[in-house]
Simulated assay, not measured.
Amino acid sequence: MAKPTILLVDDSVLMRTIIGDIVRADDELSLVGAAENGKVALEMVKSLKPDIVLLDIEMPEMSGLEVMEHLSLMSRAKVIIISSVAQVGSPEANEARALGAVEIIAKPSGTMSSRPCPQEGSRHRRCHPPRRRLTPAREALSLRFGASFPER
């Protein structure tokens, strides 16, 4: 079975980098593109025909919810919302579900620090927490689709 292809859509360069790294680290997933807003995403969907779209809600030019309205008419891609505003049970999450989102993942909140580890060379839990067995994106895909991923 071919790897599911993924299009990542988020206006934040930082989030595109972090989420892109998570997806690229999984050998069973293929990141085929990244878009900075909804308008660009719709053009990319036409040409790339991804199996899955990882989609933010709040973006300039066209929101993730607006993208979903158009996407359902032009693609069979599954949509996974990755957003800080679409928390489970929120109006945005409910609307995304109504528009066909298969999963909603909350973006991490809080601050990130670029300060170096105070114990250089060590791998202690405060600066280097243990890695989870499944990445959030992979966990959502596994929960939703089980052992096999959707085919085109």
Rank of each mutant, 00 (worst) to 15 (best):
G20K: 14
V53N: 09
A147S: 15
P136R: 11
R16L: 05
L99Q: 01
S47G: 02
T111P: 04
F145C: 10
A147R: 12
P130S: 14
M44T: 03
G20V: 13
I81Y: 04
K49S: 10
E92V: 02
V9S: 10
K49F: 05
R132G: 15
V13H: 06
L71Q: 11
H124P: 01
L14M: 07
A147I: 09
N37A: 07
A77G: 07
S83C: 00
V23P: 14
M44K: 08
S72K: 13
S30T: 15
G33Y: 05
A101K: 11
T135Y: 05
T5E: 08
M112D: 04
E28T: 15
E61M: 14
M15L: 11
H124S: 05
G33H: 09
C117M: 04
D26R: 14
L55A: 13
E120T: 02
S142K: 12
S142C: 12
V23E: 12
R24H: 09
S83Q: 01
L48W: 00
R138Y: 11
R16C: 01
P116K: 09
L29S: 12
I18W: 04
S63Y: 10
K39I: 13
A2I: 13
G38I: 02
K3H: 07
E58H: 08
S75R: 06
H124G: 06
H70C: 07
D10T: 04
K49W: 01
D10K: 04
P129G: 02
P130C: 14
Q87F: 08
V53P: 08
P60S: 11
V85S: 11
G89Q: 14
I104V: 14
I82P: 00
V67Q: 03
D11L: 10
T135V: 08
M112F: 10
H124E: 06
Q87E: 08
